[in-house]
Design a protein around this nucleic acid. Structure first.
Lengths: 228, 228
DNA sequence: TCAAAAGTGTTTCAAGTACACCCATGA
DNA sequence: TCATGGGTGTACTTGAAACACTTTTGA
């Protein structure tokens, strides 16, 4: 029986945190401040303790290294090729989350010397197999966002329809037709008007909406299927 | 550094193998022949060695315990709550596969005393959290099969359109319209006629088709998206 | 008054739904 | 000849796509 505060051997966690800014998708990376990978960029992550669930471990590690907190991490999958980690055998479990960049101030913590956002189309060389993990996780996101309404997490609570459209265009890497995009979304009855308009814009102010999770859950029960 | 033939601590693999028979979905279970779970049904699985990838481990364990071989296992996800395994902390990685039941003769092997198929709507009490894993994995399958052409793996190489329809009806648990189902599938250009008809049927013999993976891959490149 | 984005209307065409129908075959 | 599943035709309805258009607003 292991002591509960010990670390599990051969098993780690890595987090792919997606953000949205300037009409582009970014991911959150940390720079290692020690060890053989010192100075290299990598996904936030680390070791799991015997007395915590893997979900809890993912959240603890992310928060400690980047100061990003109060977000919902979801598991993607495990990566377990034999040579993926130097020196010893390590299998890693990958988590991901979609967040609104503006909500967070970043602070490097733990064994990490720096934290920053990187455009997904221009990510730096990364430690271990983190480039491969990131690419696969992004492909997974591109697929998932068309079938589930998870994109809203990348935006502020209140957003305009154009912001939402630009988000989809950034992730799917294709232009969408504005009138048709509007109609499709509105017809789903997932967006609720905030009775509020954009401020400090020099053009006509857009209506702001928020995602209505309750309606979505009700629709799900009736067999509704989100598709974009 | 660990010896390469040693087992990784705190990490296991479990396999959910789906089959199709008599218009119903089944899963493959093993009965434990030793240990504290002796006599209980469970998912095929076990421990990972230091010198094998997790994909290889899943295949090795499944084959050793059930004699099911030459199939493609895909990873679902890891389950890692603290109390899910008795006595010690174990995180398990779940794999799944879709197979044609008739292709396999089952033979219990390793620490397993019995192997059998169970209807998904009537699974026995299982060891550990395997019931929860099975349910989640089946939900995942129900979703996945509507967006990717993976169902064909549950059928013989050559199948009739009604067999395919019954498969979808079994998984999605709803009746489908025959003429419309036919047309939808045929229009996708994923099925190739085998120039062969059913034999030994007492009604009109149906045309047999096979899934054309090459065409599918080509269509994928062009942006095709499978939907049912 | 102009540029930029908000937001609406309309035509066209493809695709899904529902259901009636005929065909082939062995018991 | 009848039951059973194989297979086709068609009218109806919905919904996506394309694009022209009007509205609002600050500079």
């Amino acid at each position: 029986m292991n002591a509960t505060n010990e670390i599990i051997d051969a098993l780690s966690i890595d987090c792919v945190i997606f953000g949205f800014k300037d009409a582009a998708i970014s991911i959150l990376l940390v720079k290692h401040g020690q060890g053989v990978t010192k100075g290299q960029w990598a996904l936030p992550g680390g070791w799991i303790m015997y007395n915590e669930s893997i979900d809890d471990a993912a959240y603890r590690l992310l928060t400690a290294q980047t100061a990003v907190k109060n977000i919902y991490l979801e598991q993607y999958q495990a990566f377990g090729k034999v040579g993926r980690f130097p020196e010893k055998r390590v299998i890693t479990i990958c988590y991901y989350a979609l967040v609104n960049i503006e909500k967070f101030e970043l602070h490097a913590g733990g064994s990490v010397s720096q934290v920053d956002w990187f455009n997904i189309r221009n990510i730096p060389k990364m430690a271990f197999d983190h480039t491969e993990i990131t690419k696969k996780c992004f492909s997974f996101l591109q697929h998932k966002i068309r079938h589930e309404p998870i994109g809203f997490n990348l935006l502020p609570k209140k957003f305009s329809l154009l912001q939402l459209q630009e988000l989809y265009e950034a992730i799917l890497d294709q232009k969408l037709d504005k009138p048709n995009f509007r109609r499709r979304l509105m017809k789903m009855n997932l967006l609720v008007s905030c009775d509020e308009k954009q401020k400090d814009v020099w053009h006509r102010a857009a209506q702001l909406y928020r995602f209505d999770k309750k309606s979505y859950d009700q629709l799900l029960d009736k067999g509704f299927s989100f598709e974009i």
